[in-house]
Amino acid sequence: MIYAEILAGGKGTRMGNTEMPKQFLMLGNKPIFIHTVEQFLLNRRIDKILICCPEQWMAYTKDTLKKYSVNMDTIFVIKGGNTRNETILNGCNFIEENFGLHDDDIILTHDAVRPFINQRIIDDNIDGTLKYGAIDTVVEAFDTIVHSIDGKLITDIPLRDEMYQGQTPQSFNIKLLMSLFHSLTKAEKEILTDACKALVIKGKDVHLVKGEVYNIKITTQHDLKVANGLIEGDK
């Protein structure tokens, strides 16, 4: 089975003073997360879609999906976790409890606030994960990356040709991902910034697929303005 997990568990504090989490804000004529879900619904290879959101917003999420006439036949709204990786694991546990796990089951984890994902990226993630077991979506770093430990002095300037900016989806064989999550020590869990790092620190290969510059994450008010500009430009 091929699952997509839409990560809508964030509170969106960097968006500023808004009445709801950023994934529910309007982009064009519908909420951001609706745009995202619709892209995954278009892909016929995906069997089921999980939307992981804060518990207090689960009813609102379901009502919004119905309001915008989203086909709910393959969609499940579930409770997110306190962290990104906890949310991902909640999704995997839901799959195991409700559908069972098979050796070739994979999951595409994607930010609810990356609504400009396209079908090529989704298909590349599916193909890559079925072949390799773990995929990260990236774009080349166009700017020089400066490393600083204390935020005051340059520690290192890595070669730009070797640097990439991470996007999503991040996609995994579910059994592989769950086994690695469960094997992490408390110290290892504390340094995780995303699921791919769990594999990297355990010495597992994570293959790359090419993202797109416009596959942006809407995090701030500026991002939302840029996203609305992209929506208007497509009309």
Results as ranks from 00 to 15, higher is better:
1 M>F: 09
4 A>R: 10
8 A>H: 01
12 G>I: 01
13 T>N: 13
15 M>S: 12
17 N>D: 10
20 M>H: 05
20 M>G: 07
20 M>F: 10
24 F>W: 00
24 F>I: 01
31 P>A: 00
42 L>F: 06
42 L>D: 10
46 I>E: 01
46 I>R: 07
48 K>V: 04
49 I>A: 00
50 L>R: 12
51 I>L: 06
52 C>T: 07
53 C>A: 11
55 E>G: 00
58 M>S: 13
59 A>D: 07
61 T>K: 02
62 K>T: 05
63 D>L: 11
64 T>C: 00
64 T>D: 00
67 K>D: 01
69 S>I: 03
71 N>Y: 06
77 V>E: 05
78 I>G: 00
78 I>M: 07
80 G>D: 01
81 G>I: 06
81 G>Q: 01
84 R>K: 12
87 T>Y: 02
90 N>M: 07
93 N>C: 08
94 F>G: 00
97 E>V: 04
99 F>H: 05
102 H>W: 04
103 D>R: 05
104 D>L: 13
105 D>M: 00
106 I>K: 00
107 I>R: 04
111 D>E: 12
117 I>K: 02
118 N>D: 11
120 R>P: 11
120 R>T: 08
120 R>H: 09
120 R>C: 02
120 R>K: 13
121 I>R: 02
121 I>N: 05
121 I>E: 03
122 I>N: 10
123 D>E: 09
125 N>Q: 04
126 I>E: 04
126 I>P: 01
128 G>W: 03
129 T>A: 03
130 L>K: 12
131 K>G: 02
132 Y>S: 12
132 Y>N: 06
132 Y>C: 09
136 D>P: 08
136 D>M: 08
136 D>A: 12
137 T>Q: 13
140 E>A: 13
142 F>I: 15
144 T>E: 15
145 I>M: 15
150 D>R: 09
152 K>Q: 13
153 L>N: 14
157 I>A: 13
160 R>S: 14
163 M>F: 15
166 G>F: 03
167 Q>N: 06
168 T>Q: 12
168 T>G: 08
175 K>N: 07
176 L>Q: 04
180 L>A: 02
181 F>N: 14
182 H>D: 09
187 A>P: 06
188 E>H: 06
189 K>D: 08
192 L>E: 03
194 D>V: 03
195 A>S: 14
198 A>I: 14
201 I>R: 05
208 L>P: 10
210 K>T: 11
211 G>F: 03
215 N>T: 10
215 N>K: 06
218 I>V: 10
222 H>M: 15
224 L>C: 12
224 L>W: 07
225 K>A: 15
226 V>H: 11
228 N>Y: 08
229 G>Y: 11
230 L>R: 07
232 E>Q: 14
232 E>M: 08
